[in-house]
Computed example of a mutant assay.
Amino acid sequence: MGRIRVLVADGHRVFAEAVAAALAAEPDIDVAAADSTRAAEQALRRAAADGRAVHVLLVDADLGATPPAARTPAARTPGGAGPRARTPAADGLALAARSRTDHPGLRVVVLAAADDPRRAVRALQAGAGAWLPRDCPRDRLTAVVRGVLRDETHLPPALLTGVVRELVATRTDRAENRRLLDTLTPRERQVLRCMVDGLGRQAAAERLHLSPHTVRTHVQNVLGKLGVHSALAAVALARRAGMSPAETAAAGG
């Protein structure tokens, strides 16, 4: 591959610079830093346009939640480079998902202040190849950067059991929700897909060439078969089963 190009996306400049310096000590790694999701996305686009696409994105799991000044001290940087701040939101995971979609060859490593199996699963589902503690040593960080380029997945051993449990629970929940969707008639599934797509009764009626009254009847049948009491709950169940808004275009055809 030659030189490995890494982008560190973190809202706390001191931490980002410390991580960049730790990685830059490796003779075959070039590192840049971005302090926001917007800056990171712009850097990724510029690099791709210049023919120097970033290979690995290191992203703060909490990136963009609140300004760094409003954060409270927490973990230390790799190699003990000093205190770091964190926040409870997960904006970095959204950046990971968008970046993987926009740059399919990109590998993502998520750095987190605390082990959280549920968020780690979300990171993996977003396309991340690794979840690491913020205070991991430099040699571990560089080993993971090289590992994700070989399509390896890296998780802290202490987190593995919780992640497997979350994945099993998610799979079981999705299977049960799909079983419920299988009880719907083809027309009821079309109506549900319209609901997932955010269409009201009139718009769904126009898409499916039905009367609003007929759509209302189908909606009531859908709620009853799914065992929920609102359209919002039906949509949430459908999304958990894997039905996405993109599917609805075919439903109205």
Rank of each mutant, 00 (worst) to 15 (best):
R239P: 06
L95W: 14
A231S: 09
A85F: 08
L124H: 06
R5Q: 03
L237A: 08
A236M: 10
V121C: 05
V163F: 03
G2M: 06
Q125C: 03
R187I: 07
L232K: 15
S211W: 14
M243G: 07
S244M: 14
D28F: 12
G147D: 13
T161Y: 10
V108N: 09
A231C: 10
H154E: 10
A53N: 07
T101N: 09
H103K: 09
Q125T: 05
R118T: 07
C194K: 13
V196P: 12
R146P: 06
L232R: 15
A126Q: 03
V164W: 08
V148S: 04
A205P: 00
V144R: 05
P88M: 12
A238F: 07
A9E: 06
R201S: 02
G127C: 01
G198T: 05
A16Q: 09
L208P: 00
V8I: 00
T185Y: 07
G200L: 06
A126C: 03
P117V: 00
R179F: 13
A231I: 12
R239Q: 15
A158C: 02
F15T: 03
A246T: 13
A39D: 13
V235R: 11
T101P: 01
A70W: 13
E41K: 15
A236L: 10
M1A: 04
D91K: 15
L149F: 03
A241N: 03
A24S: 08
R107G: 04
A97N: 05
V219C: 04
S99T: 06
S99A: 15
R13E: 04
R119L: 11
V191S: 05
A22G: 04
A231D: 11
T101S: 11
V121D: 02
L44F: 15
L23A: 02
